[in-house]
């Protein structure tokens, strides 16, 4: 890994972390509902610098984020890690298999969907074993995730275009 790559990953992780922290300050009326702002950075990283860099940014963001908020290795950490890794993986796989099919918005939607599915699954396994409760909130969460996902995708798209221009 070159020094420039490390510098990029550090900078992007810092941005992801800032957004992640900012988001955690907001009250969440529905548990496990997040805007997923950090995914803006993950997606941008994935498209511009590749899968490895994106996964690094995600891992750094999740671990450091949980250390800052004092939830390291706690339940929130498990949910955050599961959601983060699954969504990054889903985007990476889709992008490598079908590079031209989806743009940033589509990728962001896929990320949001898999993020939510993995978190709902983890929440079911770890915390609430009432399948009907999970099924009841699943469409609501996926709907909200679709809205935030498309918004995040649009923002990523703008960010990528801006960064490409500067390069």
């Amino acid at each position: 890994m070159q020094l420039q790559d490390k510098y990029r990953i550090a900078l992007l992780s810092a941005y992801a972390l800032a957004l992640h922290g900012f988001e955690s300050l907001l009250p969440t009326p529905i548990p496990w509902l997040k805007l997923g702002l950090a995914n803006i950075i993950t997606l941008t990283t994935l498209i511009l610098y590749g899968f490895r860099a994106a996964l690094m940014v995600t891992l750094i963001r999740v671990v450091l984020g949980s250390l800052f908020t004092g939830t390291f290795l706690g339940p929130a950490f498990i949910l955050s890690m599961g959601g983060g890794v699954t969504s990054t993986l889903s985007m990476g796989i889709v992008l490598s298999l079908m590079p031209r099919l989806f743009g940033p918005v589509g990728l962001s939607l896929i990320a949001a969907l898999f993020h939510n599915i993995s978190q709902l699954f983890l929440a079911y396994v770890l915390f609430i074993q009432r399948i009907e409760a999970i099924l009841l909130i699943t469409p609501v969460i996926i709907f909200l995730g679709t809205l935030t996902g498309s918004m995040n995708g649009i923002v990523s798209d703008m960010l990528i275009k801006n960064l490409k221009k500067t390069n």
Binding site: L11, Y15, L37, I40, L144, T148, M151, V155, L159, L163
Partner: peptide, 23 residues
């Protein structure tokens, strides 16, 4: 590059504001 990234962060912030209003 860093400066440019920060510039585009302004756009990001505007969009985040939009997101919040929706949410």
């Amino acid at each position: 590059e860093k400066f440019k990234v920060q510039c585009s962060m302004f756009n990001v912030l505007v969009s985040i504001f939009l997101l919040f209003t929706i949410h």
